[in-house]
């Protein structure tokens, strides 16, 4: 039982990271019906920025904040420059653009920072808590995620810009008639998603070590979490990400402790989706006649 709870808690910590990236995916999907396959690599690149700052002796949390700002601006620029030309193109063209972006970021990171694994400092000490049920590091990761979620929730709920972004995602034509610049809202959405992704990257880097491939697995888990939660539901994305994290950990502990654990976790989740084809919190995909 102790082992089980231990695995659940450490699963929640990695799940919190998947949840963050899943949330980034959901934000962009809600606004444009597009799965951003470059989300993970963008986060990885952001993490390298944080890594450079930390190496330049910038205090950790200052580096964290700076990275989020840079990522936010970078995300906006990417939307306006890279994604905008395919805004009205077939979705597959936009998907291919995000795949291209994935390759570009991955190659650029490899070229600039090499493919060597880099150590990344954790802001949280690694001490056992509650009779070794969990560590302070796990708790820290979960806390950071929860704080970020609360901030996002408040932003969307209480600010005019947040409300305008929701309106633009839901009904762009009407939003324009209200004077909302839908294009700008999309850019802000990409900026926010990039900043959320950066948080995920910085949180996961001390665990996985930093290299250009760091986020590829995380992206897959995040995508799974987002879909499990219902791809259009931010709350669902968070819960989905947590479920994926716990499932992955339990499969690794009890079923199969090898590389196959990824496959087994995926199969389990696909089976769940077969019974809930729109995710746990999603609404049915409506097709127009």
């Amino acid at each position: 039982m102790h082992l089980f709870l231990q695995q659940v808690f450490s699963g929640l910590a990695s799940g919190a990271i998947y949840a963050s990236l899943a949330l980034a995916l959901v934000m962009i999907y809600r606004a444009t019906d597009l799965v951003n396959f470059a989300q993970g690599e963008m986060a990885m690149f952001s993490t390298y920025i944080a890594w450079m700052l930390v190496n330049a002796a910038v205090p950790f949390w200052a580096a964290f904040a700076l990275t989020l700002i840079v990522s936010f601006i970078g995300g906006m620029v990417i939307e306006r420059v890279v994604v905008r030309p395919v805004e009205n193109a077939p979705v597959l063209a936009a998907v291919v653009v995000t795949i291209g972006l994935l390759l570009i970021f991955n190659a650029l990171a490899g070229w600039l920072f090499t493919y060597t694994l880099q150590e990344f400092p954790s802001p949280f000490p690694d001490r056992p808590l509650f009779g070794a049920l969990m560590t302070t590091r796990d708790l820290g990761v979960i806390a950071v995620t929860l704080i970020m979620l609360a901030l996002l929730f408040a932003f969307f709920r209480f600010t005019a810009t947040g409300l305008a972004m929701r309106a633009a995602a839901q009904n762009p034509a009407s939003a324009r008639l209200c004077g909302i610049r839908v294009g700008r809202m999309l850019a802000i959405g990409w900026g926010l998603a990039a900043a959320i992704g950066a948080t995920a990257g910085i949180m996961v880097a001390p665990i996985l070590f930093l290299d250009p491939e760091m986020m590829s697995g995380v992206l897959l888990y995040a995508f799974t979490g987002a879909l499990l939660g219902g791809i259009t539901s931010p709350v669902g994305a968070v819960i989905g990400g947590l479920i994926v994290g716990v499932t992955e950990n339990l499969v690794g502990t009890y079923l199969i402790a090898s590389q196959l654990k990824l496959t087994v976790a995926l199969i389990l989740i696909v089976i769940v989706l077969a019974f809930r084809p729109n995710g746990l919190f999603g609404t049915a995909i409506v097709r127009r006649v």
Binding site: L163, R166, A167, Q170, N171, A173, S174, C178
Partner: peptide, 17 residues
């Protein structure tokens, strides 16, 4: 052109955007 997923008050807030 109502934002059906938002509340009445949020719709009005959007009008005042």
């Amino acid at each position: 052109g109502t934002f059906v997923g938002l509340t009445v008050e949020e719709n009005l807030r959007l009008g005042g955007y």
